[in-house]
Write a protein that binds this DNA or RNA. Structure first.
Lengths: 248, 248
DNA sequence: GTACCGTTTTGACATGCATCAATAATGGAT
DNA sequence: ATCCATTATTGATGCATGTCAAAACGGTAC
């Protein structure tokens, strides 16, 4: 289906990295204009997933990294005893699958939180290309180290911060990631359920809910379901004592 | 000083990756026997740090990754408000600094927990070499993704597990890492203070201490200061519901 | 050997958050 | 528009762990 489309419009899709509005967030950021064709040669465009569909599954053979074009993805790991841990939310321009690089199988499961389109980077081709383009390799290292850092920030958040601080941090993180895409940083709709937020932040759903209403009563935010408006960003930043950086 | 020694014994040190007992844990693992010389060309041997000395500091220019030869290193990040978060413990054969790859500055601070010797990999040379040796590049990706995974496991541990489970997990992790080096996995001495354990696991020092004595009363371990003996590994594994993998 | 300082242990108490339970709202399907 | 299932909210209660305080221990310098 998506395949058929791809064959159809071979030419316009071929040029897509050049004209993609997200290229300044994604892999193309790394390469020279004239190397961009090499990257486009290996990228598979236009795969679309509906809400809840798996992009890939933990412990299946690792084939590709995926860049989010639109929509949102959550990744999670399942432990032996079946407990799920949400490890990250990925917004447009962000790369999913870095935690599986160099491994035989995917280290986590990725599913679409809403209707989501992605670009696919087959891993053998990507590794081959990064061997040829030092800038691209450097950028891969950068993205991966960013993910390590984000993960450490998350660990810090989990071990040292209160429920309010954690949620404020997440809201601010999402805000800045929306802003990067030239979207409103104060008025957006959460791609994930309360449940996912709770799991990601190491809280109970009830606590997340309570903090949302508390923030609302304080006039810091206005929330109705997944629609959120940040009314007092200053106050949120005050609540969050750290965790200023983007997180994975 | 170390420099002087290096000049002195140029020849034996040059061959060190070949004969290093840790090579099966470290970077040399990735490369063919005949490529090993290339790696040895860039590695600087024999730097030694005393307990408490900084190997590198957060926010200073990122120059090198370091492999632990002997001793132990802890890494930590300092947040804006001055709080410290221990992000990892590194034992012989493990690579420190991956969270700074592709960045201008070090993302964390690394200090020696005891007298520690390291090999240094200057980053420009390392990146250059990984561009030439696909196996080495692949191994770098693997190590970095392992660190992401370890960090996610830690996040899971912090958000879903009790104090007892966290400490059991850490003890088992250390145990298996000692065993890899052909040392006793049941009788070892902790390289880090209770304080570092507490910080790493997101607990108060007092809680760590209490759990240690509780484990002791149950006959699971025997601890005296930093000397630990695991008396009942089975029991520890039962306590730990997950977190089986090595962690960073 | 002794004195000192940092580390570890132990105890008493307070609290933030999980848990259990029930109601309310939301949204997709018919 | 109505219904059902999922998701979100709100309330009451208990517990694990943090915090404060003080004592015991261990290593190091003199």
């Amino acid at each position: 289906m998506a395949q058929a489309i791809r064959l159809h419009q071979a030419s316009p899709l071929k040029a897509s990295c050049h004209q993609c509005s997200l290229s300044n967030l994604c892999l193309p950021l790394a390469v020279e204009e004239n190397d961009l064709d090499r990257l486009e040669d290996i990228v598979q465009q236009g795969r679309i997933f509906n809400r809840g569909e798996h992009i890939f599954d933990q412990s299946t053979p690792f084939r590709s990294c995926f860049a989010v074009k639109s929509g949102a993805i959550k990744t999670s790991i399942i432990s032996e005893n079946g407990e799920e841990q949400v490890t990250g939310f990925f917004m447009p321009g962000e790369l999913v699958g870095l935690d599986s690089m160099g491994s035989k199988n995917y280290a986590c499961t990725a599913r679409a939180l809403e209707r989501t389109s992605v670009c696919e980077f087959p891993i053998e081709k990507l590794e081959e290309l990064t061997g040829k383009l030092p800038d691209l390799q450097h950028h891969m290292y950068h993205l991966m180290s960013q993910e390590i850092q984000g993960s450490h920030q998350l660990a810090m958040l989990l071990s040292k911060n209160t429920a309010e601080e954690r949620i404020a941090a997440l809201l601010l993180s999402l805000s800045s990631r929306f802003q990067r895409r030239r979207m409103s940083g104060t008025n957006f709709s959460l791609p994930m359920a309360r449940n996912d937020i709770a799991n990601f932040l190491g809280l109970a759903v009830e606590t997340v809910s309570r903090v949302f209403t508390r923030f609302q009563n304080q006039g810091i935010i206005s929330a109705r379901g997944r629609k959120v408006e940040l009314l007092d960003v200053e106050a949120l930043q005050t609540v969050t004592r750290e965790f200023s950086r983007q997180n994975a």
